[in-house]
Nucleic acid binder design. Sequence first.
DNA 1: GACAAGATGTTGCATGTACATGTATCCTTC
DNA 2: GAAGGATACATGTACATGCAACATCTTGTC
Lengths: 149, 149
Amino acid sequence: MTPAAAPPVSDLAATWQHVLLLHTRVENRLATALQRRHGIGLSEFRALGHLAASPTSELRMQELADKVGLNQSSVTRLVARLGTAGFAVRDLCPDDKRGVYTVLTEAGRTRHAEASRTYEETLEAALEEARRADPQLAAALTALSAHAS
Amino acid sequence: MTPAAAPPVSDLAATWQHVLLLHTRVENRLATALQRRHGIGLSEFRALGHLAASPTSELRMQELADKVGLNQSSVTRLVARLGTAGFAVRDLCPDDKRGVYTVLTEAGRTRHAEASRTYEETLEAALEEARRADPQLAAALTALSAHAS
DNA sequence: GACAAGATGTTGCATGTACATGTATCCTTC
DNA sequence: GAAGGATACATGTACATGCAACATCTTGTC
């Protein structure tokens, strides 16, 4: 379920292997926790998060695709799932009839807020564990969390 | 195809979003490069790498699963693909008849060596680009590359 | 030896994703 | 205002993955 050892190659590849290891472990834990405790997947949760973060609680398909890191077709199906679950509704764009807005529903906002707590807790725990297992990682994460953008 | 902006949430989640962003971008570039220039996927490449790194050029299914970060069933199919491509052969474990060794072939070793160059170059370029786009990332990667275990 | 319990892989099935393509709409130019 | 091309999504298809059920083999115990 999780990568175990780095293959002895170049320094660069070894460094990246560290990132992969971390990513796999943490994402697996997040996905499992969200699925079991809130019945939603990681992509769904993140899509809800981006919608919730939008001032108008809505995003167009391509915007959402960029933000969640999926391609456009995957987002079509993702939004379909959100719609089935009642967390979002599709709304045709009035001025551009090609466009489709995905609008967050109240149910969606609520579920996201609930799941956020789990997400935070799980992330916190997973990263803390990783830090303990690998002090270098702690340093790297600290460097990253010096807040950006 | 790649995440664009961080959703305004907690610091922790924002930090993790950074990692996700990096991961998606780099892995996509690696996968595309390997597929187009060598006709193999990322999982296949990494499996070959772990096999090549093994002193005996062979690993059992569960070991391989741990190393590449997939579960057993996925590895069964992964090894089947490697077998079809001629990069590995299955070998029954003589002393434990439940076990199956996946043995790297010469063709597999060769292909991995070739692909490694692409992998290194692409990784180098992708990380360099990411560094330029985000100075914090540079610091974090430096902290990580202070070589571990 | 025989049986129970555990370990090791494999297979059936469902899901999620990417790629290629289709359809509708918009925009630019003439 | 019609033609040509670009853009925004949807759909068909293929494939990789995870989970659960299964078969096979080993080990421990009697």
